[in-house]
Simulated scan of single mutants.
Amino acid sequence: MSPAEPPYRRIAAEIRRRIALGELRAGDPVPSARRITREHGVAIATATKVLALLRDEGLVLTRPGAGTVVAPGPGPATRTGRSEPELTRDRVVRTAIALADAGGLAAVSMRQLAAELGVATMSLYRHVRGRDELVLAMADTVLGDAPLPARQPTGWRARLELLARAHWAAYRRHRWLPHVISIPRPQLMPHGMAHTEWALRATDGLGLDRQLRWHIAITLVAYVRGIATNLEMRAQAEQDTGLTDDQWVDRQEDTFRRVIVAGGYTTMAALTAEGDVDLDLDSVFEFGLHRFLDGCAALVGPAATGPVPGVTPGR
């Protein structure tokens, strides 16, 4: 193998060799994208390309619950002799979710999904009309998996906070999700609409007009989504550099200090001199969520006595 060969091809060649030698047999799991990143020190995108190449060659496929495994050759499907599960819309969508969780939305295409499922690409169109519908179904499915109890807790604040935390947890599990959700153009997602219904019901009976209730619901959703858009970038940066956020900041500390001094940023210099600050995405989420709810609490009282600045009263 030439030293100039792209890393993903070198890694794929090693797995291909193991399959050829019988070290990995039909039905055996192959290294996952995350394992490849750990063992070979490459980015998740590179690891995803390794598996995509092997799928394109027909050497591996994905089985729900088992991950990526060596594809069967002529004869029995696996050493257990069991056939592939029936292709359903749910299986198509959840396999696509697994692809996106491992490699981001860029890893999801109809061709790659078909290879993961071990089916012809055209067979997918019996279940989804195209990639756009697929991605929307993926988002709605993971929102449906977000835990919202059948009965709302007592109090508007507890209800809104529960919804915000459910969204934050979903975004942490599926870092691609905030890049799908649209605030200015609402999407037809039944589970997503159920979450909006939850937020609107949380403010029922408080004497708020419809404009204010809609603004509270949508602003809460938009706030959590906005913070969550940083999750994928953080994970990719950590994968590419091999450094956590804290480790990266530590390495850049001297450079930042020099720039702060040279730029005359006196307030930043003074606060930095006082010591470290616990500042990460989780702390920013917590701070912003509580301040948002505090603001809503201030609006609940005067809402019935006059208009709220910045919100046009309903006609």
Rank of each mutant, 00 (worst) to 15 (best):
A139V: 00
G41F: 07
R175W: 01
R25W: 11
R55F: 09
V142Y: 00
A150W: 12
R35S: 15
R210C: 01
R210V: 11
H167R: 13
R315W: 13
T78V: 07
L105I: 07
P178A: 09
A45M: 11
D56H: 15
T48S: 07
Y171I: 07
V69P: 04
G75R: 00
G264V: 15
G275I: 10
P6Y: 04
L54R: 05
A114G: 15
R25D: 02
A106K: 04
A146W: 01
I36M: 07
L162I: 04
E84K: 15
G67T: 10
L231K: 04
G242D: 03
L51W: 08
D90V: 09
G155E: 12
L134P: 01
H167Y: 12
V180I: 11
D280M: 07
L124C: 00
A45F: 01
A45W: 07
H179K: 02
T48L: 04
R213N: 14
A4P: 12
V261L: 14
D132E: 13
R91H: 00
H127L: 03
A164P: 05
H290W: 05
P307D: 02
P31H: 07
T121N: 07
A170R: 00
D254P: 12
A106Q: 04
T121Y: 05
T244P: 00
A71F: 06
T68L: 14
G58M: 11
E286N: 06
T272V: 14
L289M: 08
T141E: 00
G118T: 09
Q187L: 14
H215C: 06
P3Q: 00
T78E: 08
G310T: 03
R257L: 13
A169R: 00
R157C: 03
W214M: 15
G58S: 01
A202L: 11
L21M: 10
L206M: 03
G155D: 10
L117Q: 08
T48K: 00
V50T: 13
D240L: 12
R173V: 03
T244V: 03
R258L: 13
H40S: 01
P186M: 06
S83Y: 04
S32R: 11
E14I: 12
G310D: 01
T305N: 08
G242W: 09
P7F: 12
P29R: 05
R91M: 08
L212M: 15
G58T: 05
R210M: 10
L24E: 11
G75S: 10
R291S: 13
D278L: 12
A169T: 04
R79W: 05
R82S: 08
A269Y: 05
R185H: 10
A52H: 14
R185I: 10
Q247R: 10
P85A: 14
A13P: 08
A150M: 14
I11N: 09
L208Y: 11
P3I: 04
P178Q: 12
R159H: 06
A115M: 05
P85E: 15
R63F: 01
V108C: 09
G275A: 11
S109W: 06
L279R: 04
P149L: 03
L200V: 15
P302G: 06
G144F: 01
H215W: 09
V221M: 12
R63V: 09
F285I: 02
R16M: 11
R151T: 06
D204E: 15
L51K: 15
A102F: 03
R234W: 05
T305I: 03
T154W: 14
R185V: 13
